[in-house]
């Protein structure tokens, strides 16, 4: 049972990061960033490139781990800015922005996959283990360093972002834009600058999850699809734009996935997830976040 809970927490923290990135972007600039898969892979490949050169430069140990994490986030943040400058800045004040930016991000993700294929080839690229190898035994079960590190780093990063959102001036601007974009613009919050900032931050979150996920799987041109789809599902179930809702949904979905894989069948996982999300949405068309809002009121 403990193992199930741990694997649920690992899954939840990794997918939750992607989901919060999507949710963030939607709430503040009204753009559904479906190029999140491309951003995800960009972080993975940046980290991989760094790891390749790190061997040459003789960087090992903690410096390598920190470098992989930071460069993964940096690469994804830059990819996020790139997506923003193609799909957000030119379309932002045009008619039908939502649909058009949706299609634009999809086109970027189509192009992105092929570019990775051209430059890095179809092979899977492994990343060095960031948290070392080993296990801590707790009673009946145990937890590997990798799982522990994933949970700690992901939740630490999330906490840092939320804290920054609540306490800093830039965070205030972003929250203002989430609540009322027009009002924020009227009182002098630049839609474009803040939007690009949001895209960079959600890119960085995605890049972190990319490095963390690459500890289990590998980096490949299409490795962004699965996190994108799961992230979408989670952000939908959590209610787009609500961070507590997204965190709750990530926990729920991670638990459901771990439970199904353990006690039912791995092949049923997609259907269980889909069924849960459809059920949530049928009763709460605005997701869990909407539910939380109602309770608060």
């Amino acid at each position: 049972m403990i193992e199930v809970l741990i694997s649920a927490a690992v899954l939840a923290s990794m997918y939750g990061l992607v989901a919060i990135g999507i949710s963030f972007t939607w709430a503040s600039i009204g753009m559904l960033n479906l190029a999140q898969g491309f951003i995800f892979t960009a972080g993975g490949y940046t980290a991989w490139l760094f790891a390749q050169y790190a061997e040459v430069w003789g960087i090992t140990g903690p410096a390598l781990s920190v470098g992989v994490l930071i460069l993964g986030m940096g690469g994804s943040a830059i990819a996020g800015l790139l997506v923003g400058s193609v799909a957000f800045l030119p379309l932002q004040d045009r008619a039908n922005f939502r649909t058009r930016s949706l299609i634009a991000t999809l086109a970027i993700s189509l192009i992105g996959t092929q570019l990775w294929l051209i430059f890095f080839g179809p092979q899977n690229k492994p990343l060095p283990p960031v948290f070392g190898e080993g296990r801590i035994e707790i009673g009946a079960g145990g937890i590997s360093y990798q799982q522990l590190g994933t949970i700690i780093v992901a939740s630490g990063m999330l906490a840092a972002v939320i804290f920054w959102m609540r306490s800093s001036r830039h965070g205030l601007q972003m929250r203002a834009m989430m609540m009322n974009p027009l009002g924020a613009a009227v009182v002098g919050v630049s839609v474009r600058t803040t939007g690009m900032r949001v895209l960079a931050i959600s890119g960085a979150l995605t890049g972190l999850s990319s490095v963390l996920l690459a500890q289990i799987f590998f980096v490949s041109p299409t490795s962004g699809t699965q996190p994108l789809v799961t992230g979408l599902i989670i952000s939908l179930a959590g209610g787009l734009g609500s961070i507590p809702g997204t965190v709750a949904a990530a926990g729920l979905i991670g638990l459901a996935e771990a439970l199904t894989a353990r006690y039912l069948q791995q092949s049923l996982v997609p259907f269980v997830l889909f069924g849960i999300v459809v059920l949530i949405l049928i009763f709460r068309p605005r997701g869990l976040g909407g539910l939380l809002e109602d309770v608060r009121e």
Binding site: L102, L232, I233, L236, P270, F271, V278, L281
Partner: peptide, 16 residues
């Protein structure tokens, strides 16, 4: 758009 997001994942699920 919520519906678009929900159905985007379907193909991936079927593939899995």
């Amino acid at each position: 758009l919520y519906y678009a997001l929900l159905t985007l994942g379907l193909s991936e699920f079927m593939r899995n």
